[in-house]
Every structure is written in C-alpha cells, then in structure tokens.
Design a protein around this nucleic acid. Sequence first.
DNA 1: CAGTGGTCTAGACCACTGA
DNA 2: CAGTGGTCTAGACCACTGT
Lengths: 229, 229
Amino acid sequence: MRASYRHVKEDILRHITSGAWPPGSAIASEVDLASQYGCARATVNRAMRELAEEGLIERRRKAGSRVRDVPVRQARFDIPLIREEIEHRGGRYKYALIAQQNCTAPDWLRPRLKLKAEGRLLHMTCMHYASGAPYQFEDRWINLDALPEAETVDFDQIGPNEWLIQMVPFTDVDMSFTAQAADEVLAAHLDCMPGDPLFHVERATWHEGRALTYVRLYFAPGYRMATSY
Amino acid sequence: MRASYRHVKEDILRHITSGAWPPGSAIASEVDLASQYGCARATVNRAMRELAEEGLIERRRKAGSRVRDVPVRQARFDIPLIREEIEHRGGRYKYALIAQQNCTAPDWLRPRLKLKAEGRLLHMTCMHYASGAPYQFEDRWINLDALPEAETVDFDQIGPNEWLIQMVPFTDVDMSFTAQAADEVLAAHLDCMPGDPLFHVERATWHEGRALTYVRLYFAPGYRMATSY
DNA sequence: CAGTGGTCTAGACCACTGA
DNA sequence: CAGTGGTCTAGACCACTGT
C-alpha cells in the first residue's frame, strides 16, 4: 500500500501533535502533498477535509491550509436512551410514571417553544431507577397540537422518551447543561437532601421549526457525564 | 447542477426525518441511488458516509444500509478558551493567579495521571472574571516531568490554560462534567454561598500516553453549557 | 488574475460478509 | 460465491479569494 488517506491524515496529524508544525504554520497545498505522498489529490483532500472537520486545521481557498492558532477542540457526547445507559453499566432499569395531565402552556414555556396561548400540552413527570436506586427525574411537556397521538399512549407502560424516539421523527434539538439545587420535591424523588447539587439537562426537540417536546432531566447526586477525544 | 452530494444527503435525510423511511428500513444500494439521482457512485457514497458519521444510518458491506433503529444522536460542544468565551459574550476578561507551588503528586491524583510517587508537579489556583464578576475558579496541576519549562513561566502574566494551549501539543483529552456543592473556599472566590450548586469540569490532557496536566474548573452559579444540532 | 480548495466523474480494485 | 460498501485514481471544472 502506498498512501491511503488514513496514512496521509495520520502523518499530518503527527506533524501537528509533535509540535513540528506549530499553530499558525502553513501546510503545503493539496497538489504538492499529493506528489509528496505519491497519491491522488482526492486522497490528500479527504485527509485534510477530515482534519478540518475535527478542528485541527483551517482551510481557505487560495490562501491554503494552516494549523489552527487555537485548536478549537470539540467534545462529542453520545445521547443514549437512559435504559441503555443504565443497562450498559450493568444496572437494572426501572421506570415509573408519577403524574400526567393535559394543560395549556405556562407563561415561561410558551415563548421557548413558540406556542400560542391556547396551545394544548401533555405534562407528565416520571422517575427512572438503576438497580432500585433513583437515577433520574424527568419533567416533560409534549406538544399535543403537533403530536395528538400522544394523548392515547399509555405512559404507564412506556417512558415518554422511549415512545418519542421510536415514534416521532425530529430535525433539531436544543440542549443545555447546568447545576441546580434540589428542591423538596426533587429531594424526595431522588432520595437526597434539599439543596443538594444536581446535574440538570434541558432539551427542546423540533420538527421543521415546530416544537415537539420539552424536557427537564434531573440526575441523582454523583452523576457524571464523560467523554474523551 | 444535477445532484451534488448535499442534494443527495438532504433528500435521504428528508425521507428519514419525515418518517417515510422508518427506523430499520433498508436503503437502496449506492449503485442504485447513483442511477436514481443521475450522479456518480462516489457522490452518493459521500452523502451516505456523512449520514453514517452523524449516526443516522448504519452501513455494512454486503448487507447494505439501513436507517438506525435508535438514532444514537451525538451532541458536539466547542471547548473554547475562556477568554474568548467571555469576550464573545461581550464581557471584559480578567485573570488572576491566586497561588502557586511545587509539590509531589497527592495520592488521589497519582493513579489518575499514572505518575510515579516522586513525580514533581506544579500546583496552582487562579480565577477568571467576566466584567468584574467571578466567572470560573481553576485548580490546576502541571506535570513538571513532562513539561519542565512550566517552572520558568510567569503565571501572573498568562493563565496556565492559555500558556498550555499555545505552547504544548497534546493528543488525548479526558473530560467529565458534574454538579458539585461549593465549599467555603469556592464560595469566597465565586461570590456565592457554601453549598451552592456549581457546574464542574474535570479534564486530563495527555501526549502519547504521558500526562501533561489535570485541571478542575468550577463555574460561578448560573453557568450554562449549551449546544444544538 | 491566478492559486487553492471544493466537488464531481467514470472507472477500477479490494475487503468484508451474508447467503 | 457474489453483492455491497470502502477506497483510490486521473482528470476535470468551478468557486472563492488573496494579490
């Protein structure tokens, strides 16, 4: 094998991570690299394109490619189903619906989901357990105008997240992560003290600009979200 | 223009997000799609490859491509320099070194960084402010055996993160996110109450299997890490 | 204007793996 | 064994943008 795109990519990467090509330095053009490596330009192109996607180099027509001044490194997180997350760690997953009711959009939520005042929502709360221990409290709203069929689902049998992922296609997701103090309701459900710091996820899911669902997830104390790259 | 790879990709994506091609359904082979779209197979290949990278479809030789049962969605976060993060939001960035001293690796840290007992470390703490308000407390260890030049840097002038990113190439990063309660030291620095929930980042950085630095970052109450995809 | 990356093509060979 | 994706090639045209 002469030079696969992986070859080229790893070789360039080695020059960068070793410090031989410091931040800001220019990289030879695709044509030059292709002749250096003895391969087609398309092969070099793929290697360079992937390095650019990973944020390691910067490419501009005519100007050429450079090692990024500040490597804008990106972290990637998989967002698994909670059932799989727990079972993957060897835990026994259990789900329980706490409450469910139809309602109209509260004032604080309406602008976030761009809903009308008379918008109908299904609001529910539920718990997820790992081997008997509280794992996550879920506080969810589903837009019934977009998903009327949600009204007929028996959420005692299937968690809303699992139902949504299986049944409902979506196009966009907004997500944010914060640390929040447990209030008394959360403390009771998550078996901790009021005021305890909880890892909190907020997520809105859309389909072609239309809000489908909004959820607040509170993890039991000690939860850790990890990644490596 | 007949059919660019973006064209093909978007068209396939539309079939998936609209629900027309439900999870698990098979997708035509590259050769068939190429003739359908009237383009080269390489064009279809790039579209499908990107969809696979994004976790929307699953590809196997001979078996063909399928829409994933459970879309393992991935969230991406940019990890910017804190200075840029603050200035990007229109804030005024300020940095202050609090303390700095040479030491050996504490017991709890040594196994994490795979250090020897006599390993020499530079330990420092510092603060980052946004427009005068506390923004982040940084608690950092630098491996002096891997980076002896760190000992000669004046960290009153430049923050350790900025120095490291500019001067030190790395290959691997481990990162994790949790919610933690402020202790009295953190509360004093971050201008909050002890026990307040803080968003906390832990990060270890490596070069070819050798630990370079380990840092704990504590953000002032209210910090939010967001993404969308 | 000219150099560089972005993309497409038609064809080829190969690796893997299901039947 | 045969069908599918994985990759590479040599060449081409184009879009963008620095000079």
